[in-house]
């Protein structure tokens, strides 16, 4: 874990309302793994007071990319940063995706801004594993297609691709791939992750043997385990919460109750 001031090097609007910021931090860029996150203080003032957590979106030499939409005061300030201005980064934080275990096909499931961690994951997996991506949103304006390989789209309003949600699309399509060893990587809103979890459990009860890791999110203050602000239920012990920041944000889907 490091605390560094990082310069904003590049700022792009990759599609309407979705921003990509490239921050220079050689030390963190060298260490960070896909699925880990950064806790960023966007200004020196007291409002916002706390850092804001962002998944690492990609790493390009000594640049870290983050993806965000303007949602509140913190992201508004971030979106107004000029090239050359700095932010203060605490990271890398949490546990990322396990990418080296035994599978042939990596399935990406992303909903909305849950698209954020996949470009870096793709970069790390490329050449080693076959990848298929399922990405969803309410309408095609909300589907973030940025750098997904072999992309299948689901929209709830049917404006593009499959009409329905991304988990239903995955369920329909997965039959074609069941001859392979599959690992699912999912990131999105909690409701989506819950459906993913239920589906994986059902598949596995039917003997399909899919492994699945989900990247979760939570309100948090510190990002490294001291504030205890981001509990998530441990599926193995009803009397215990895990912490999204320290025990996650990526969990094996069997280890948490969503």
């Amino acid at each position: 874990m490091l605390i560094t001031n990082s310069v904003v090097v590049e700022f792009l609007e990759i599609q309407k309302g979705i921003f990509l910021q490239k921050l220079k931090s050689p030390e963190i860029a060298e260490k960070i793994k896909p699925g880990q996150f950064l806790n960023i203080k966007v200004s020196e003032g007291y409002y916002p007071l706390l850092r804001r957590p962002f998944s690492v979106c990609d790493v390009e030499d000594d640049l870290i990319h983050i993806m965000f939409a303007v949602y509140g005061e913190g992201t508004k300030i971030l979106a107004n940063k000029k090239i050359g201005e700095t932010v203060n980064i605490l990271g890398p934080l949490g546990n990322g995706f396990n990418i080296d275990d035994d599978y042939d096909l990596a399935v990406f499931l992303a909903g909305g801004l849950g698209a954020a961690p996949f470009p870096y994951l793709t970069r790390k997996l490329n050449n080693n594993k076959e990848i298929i991506s399922f990405v969803g949103g309410r309408s095609n304006k909300e589907v973030i297609k940025y750098q997904f390989p072999n992309l299948l789209i689901a929209t709830e309003d049917g404006s593009e691709g499959f009409k329905g949600n991304v988990v239903q699309l995955f369920e329909n399509e997965i039959k074609k791939f069941l001859d392979k060893k599959i690992k699912v990587f999912a990131c999105g809103p909690n409701g989506m992750l819950k459906s993913v979890s239920n589906l994986i459990k059902r598949f596995n009860e039917e003997g399909k043997n899919l492994t699945c890791e989900v990247s979760t999110e939570s309100a948090m203050a510190c990002g490294f385990g001291i504030c205890q602000g981001c509990p998530i239920q441990d599926s193995h012990d009803p009397n215990r919460y895990l912490l999204v920041c320290k025990d996650g944000p990526v969990f094996n889907v069997n280890d948490i109750e969503l």
């Binding site: 939570s218 309100a219 948090m220 205890q228 509990p231 998530i232 919460y241």
Partner: peptide
């Protein structure tokens, strides 16, 4: 065990 989420605002 502590309180259920959400714990921080």
């Amino acid at each position: 065990k502590g309180n259920k989420p959400q714990r921080i605002f």
